[in-house]
Amino acid sequence: MSFEYTPENLTKLQEMVGRYRVKRAALLPALNLAQQQLGYISPEVEDYVAGLLNVPVVDVHEVVTFYTLYKQRPSGRHHIRLCRNISCWLRGSESIEGYLNQSLGAGEGEVSQDGRFSWEKVECLGACEIAPMLQLDDDYYGSLTREKVEEILKNVKD
């Protein structure tokens, strides 16, 4: 499956490249854009972005595997990041972890049967005042209890 940016994304990338003294500096923004479009970074995306920015494919792959936000395979339609670090742990993140496991029927890193959700444990998300907390797609939710997580998941539409 080959990959190409949509025309809008290609325009966006060209604008981004213009900000930097070297083309390669647009690599993270370029990968972010590709992931927004496709949902993950496939080998084809790596080839394509490498070509556009004139960076060796191995370097692109190295970057993709270094950063945790890049997904190398499709996740659920909605992705949950549950914070496991100190402040969230002190306020009961392990109980939320148990709940996600159980209610989604999917372990960490897996996708639920219906394809809607996937989840993973992550390090501090910079929102320890609302511990325990999680990120669902682009938003933060905090002061979690099992009931509250149930409610949050129920309110996800598709």
Binding site: R24, A25, L27, L28, L31, D59, Y67
Partner: peptide, 22 residues
Amino acid sequence: EGAGAYICGEESALLESLEGKK
């Protein structure tokens, strides 16, 4: 925008990252 790596808060790692590297 970064892409998830605590070490990129360290200033010289941050510069590397900004230049499109790990």
